[in-house]
Design a protein around this nucleic acid. Sequence first.
DNA 1: TCAAGATTGATGCATATGCATCAAGTGCGG
DNA 2: CCGCACTTGATGCATATGCATCAATCTTGA
Lengths: 161, 161
Amino acid sequence: MKRKPSTEATSAWIRLMRVQSRVLDCVEQDLKKAGFPPLAWYDALLELSRAPTGELRPVELERQMLIPQYSTSRLIDRLVDEGLAARRECKIDKRGQFVEITEAGRELQKRMWGAYSAAIEKYVGSKLSDADAVKLSALLDRLGCSCGEMKLPVNESATAR
Amino acid sequence: MKRKPSTEATSAWIRLMRVQSRVLDCVEQDLKKAGFPPLAWYDALLELSRAPTGELRPVELERQMLIPQYSTSRLIDRLVDEGLAARRECKIDKRGQFVEITEAGRELQKRMWGAYSAAIEKYVGSKLSDADAVKLSALLDRLGCSCGEMKLPVNESATAR
DNA sequence: TCAAGATTGATGCATATGCATCAAGTGCGG
DNA sequence: CCGCACTTGATGCATATGCATCAATCTTGA
């Protein structure tokens, strides 16, 4: 059976794209003006800081953040260069490694959250009632799941590009 | 007065980010597998094809697409290299120029819309009723406007990153 | 136990992006 | 009319990303 290409879906998608990129630009701009590194760093630090042991395998980080493998690899390089994380040997799998967040990393993550949450409040919270935010979340959730075959990690996390 | 950082807004924002990037990945993947260039090309071609005369000043394109000036400049380079657009002299302002879409450009835009609309249907339309899509659009609209000082072009357009 | 295949993470190379700056042209105030 | 600030669009350079591929290790199954 033929299904007419839904105008409503198209228009919702276009708004989704535009709003997301507009707001993201604003948020990143604020963070950058406050002298912070890109959001991807925050995401990684957050994931690491949440791990019970403060360390994760790169491959886990990659799956949490939904970014390609080489991207994870180089992101870790940068975090390590800045002393925000450290590579630790993985005894159970010699191919692999653990990435452990450092104290400096935890501290940066917390400071960034200050600026980040303020930006979210400014660009999202102030425009939407709590009830509407809940509705929005619910509608988005329906889109999120099972796009192709990957699974969407549902945890309250950061933003991953 | 102090305003507690809304958990709801935060969670809505995170979902917005994740869903957008997930679905966008899927859509771009489909387009790429079908042998098409990136969505940004489509956006530009669409804007050009919509212009009554089939041509726009780079600076207009830039404002429509919400991308930085140098990015527009180089995107146009690529379109021109591929014969999808042509630079035309601007008689009224000798600094400037017009970019005109070619027949090949119009044709590619139409072919891409075929694949693009199919992807939107697949990843968005099939997951959301029309009514829900409308609700989603409405909620997103509230976020879109007046982030900082720029204006959101409301026209039904493509996606601009 | 060992070979074939899969997984983990790094990297060389081409391309794309961000930033700063530039040259050319416009337009406004005096 | 002139000079000065602004707009338009391009570009050099550093950095980031995507793609393909690699080496090392792990796992499976005959």
